[in-house]
């Protein structure tokens, strides 16, 4: 094992997959010599050359469209969208082309779109969003959102090897803030499998991405009050691991859903409906959600701190659930 930051884990996965398969290539804005806005691809240009590390024009529909067309040809493109917010410019290509081509034409579209997502970096309304819910609704796209270096590397490798269009939501808040153990040998994390990040019997938190860290901190604090919290990290949003969700519900009977994305129309609502449909008789309390409020993401530190979920908010929701 070795210790890597979250961003190093992403870089390593890209590097190793490019070494492994010559059909894997990268395209995106400023990813070449500059190494990308967040330096995920630093050194790639020199090693793999400009044909496989392509600096593109600043046009997201063209980037995602080109990735989709190349994927239909059997290449394995990985498109970097500089900030996940900008994926709205490539929305049509993703939802009308990438997502539908296999179903319409029986031609696989093995591509990955990397989406540096989320707030907490004072990026303001245009550099901070979590757009996963826009795509959660689209049949034909797979969505993954790692929370640890281990999952970041393993899920990215699986995504690159998968024969479908995959949106890879990477938390730029976590990039250099967390470190974790990662195997030195080649490994993958299966897409569609959730992971119990902490075992517990009293309350289940269902979460992903940054939410995992607030949840683990809150669970740790509640140890002192003898409240035993389970933290289920979805890791994949589509396909979603229903079995893992239902089995955790059946174990604890109390559910808190945590995500950084805003509340209304967020994927927490769908998870709540799945639980209600399938595990109603196992519930001992209403399903609770912690998410960001329904406003654009604010810039000023005072406002952003108020906007984002955090350990304290998770803790307070857990305490109210514990009372049932």
């Amino acid at each position: 094992m070795k210790t890597l930051t979250y961003i190093e884990a992403i870089s390593e996965a890209l590097w190793e997959e490019m070494e492994r398969d010559k059909n894997v290539f990268l395209l995106g804005e400023d990813i070449g010599k500059y190494g990308g806005a967040f330096k995920v691809t630093k050194g790639f240009h020199e090693h793999f050359g400009e044909e496989r590390v392509i600096d593109t024009v600043l046009a997201e529909n063209a980037i995602i469209g080109a990735a989709t067309g190349a994927a239909m040809m059997g290449m394995r493109p990985i498109a970097e969208i500089q900030f996940a917010d900008f994926v709205s410019n490539g929305f049509n290509q993703l939802v009308n082309n990438s997502a539908k081509i296999f179903w319409r034409c029986n031609i696989p579209v093995p591509m990955v779109v990397r989406l540096p997502s989320g707030g907490g970096i004072h990026g303001g309304p245009y550099h901070s969003i979590n757009p996963e819910a826009w795509f959660f609704h689209i049949p034909g796209l797979k969505l993954v959102a790692p929370s640890t270096p281990y999952d970041a590397k393993g899920l990215l490798k699986s995504a690159i090897r998968d024969n479908n269009p995959i949106l890879y939501f990477e938390s730029k808040f976590l990039y250099r803030r967390i470190k974790g153990e990662v195997p030195t040998n080649d490994y993958t994390v299966e897409i569609g499998k959730a992971d119990i990040k902490r075992n517990g019997n009293d309350i289940s938190i269902i979460t992903y991405g940054t939410g995992v860290h607030w949840s683990l901190e809150a669970a740790k604090i509640l140890e002192e009050e003898n409240i035993d919290v389970e933290v289920l990290d979805l890791r994949s949003l589509i396909p979603i691991d229903k079995e893992a969700i239902f089995s955790s519900v059946k174990k604890t009977g109390k559910i808190l859903i945590v995500h950084e994305d805003t509340l209304t129309g967020g994927i927490g609502g769908e998870i709540a409906a799945l639980i209600s449909d399938n595990c109603f008789e196992f519930l001992d309390a209403p399903i609770k959600r912690i998410a960001s409020p329904d406003t654009p993401i604010p810039f000023a530190p005072t406002l952003e701190d108020h906007f984002l979920p955090n350990t304290k908010k998770v803790l307070s929701a857990l305490k109210s659930l514990a009372k049932y």
């Binding site: 529909n61 063209a62 995602i64 469209g65 080109a66 990735a67 989709t68 067309g69 190349a70 994927a71 239909m72 040809m73 059997g74 290449m75 493109p77 290509q93 082309n97």
Partner: peptide, 10 residues
């Protein structure tokens, strides 16, 4: 057209 670009690129 963006898709055709991708095919041309590949």
């Amino acid at each position: 057209i963006p898709l055709a670009n991708g095919v041309a690129l590949a």
